[in-house]
Amino acid sequence: MAERFDSYLPLSSAALHILLALAGEDLHGYGIMQEIARQSEGIYKLGPGTLYDNLRKLIQDGWVQELGPRRGDEDPRRRYYRLTDAGRGVLRAETAHLTQVVREARLRLRIPNPRRV
């Protein structure tokens, strides 16, 4: 399954963070920005121009689906986005790729693996 998406890897930082933000729930653009800032502990901040440029590409690739505005939402300008199955698959493949990178880095730098609680 993961081999299907190998040709798309590695993802750009923005694409990875957007997919990761949408992995939990459907979000609107501003919600994606806030979730990315939360996940990266404020280190990675995405501007709206960068966000929507990447979102458009992710939608074109079929990894993200645009849901449109929600009824009864506080602001009708907000449109929601959802991670598709393909998007989830490419995120899994990227995660596996990054896990391998981290494992290799720990081995080379002799960093002990974190203890499982």
Partner: peptide, 29 residues
Amino acid sequence: RFGDEMLYIFDQQKGTLAALGVMVDCVVS
């Protein structure tokens, strides 16, 4: 497609510095 949402995000910024950051990102975009 995205203009209204970009305006919405700008309206959500609190403080001049945050608004300025969004402005710079918009120019780069």
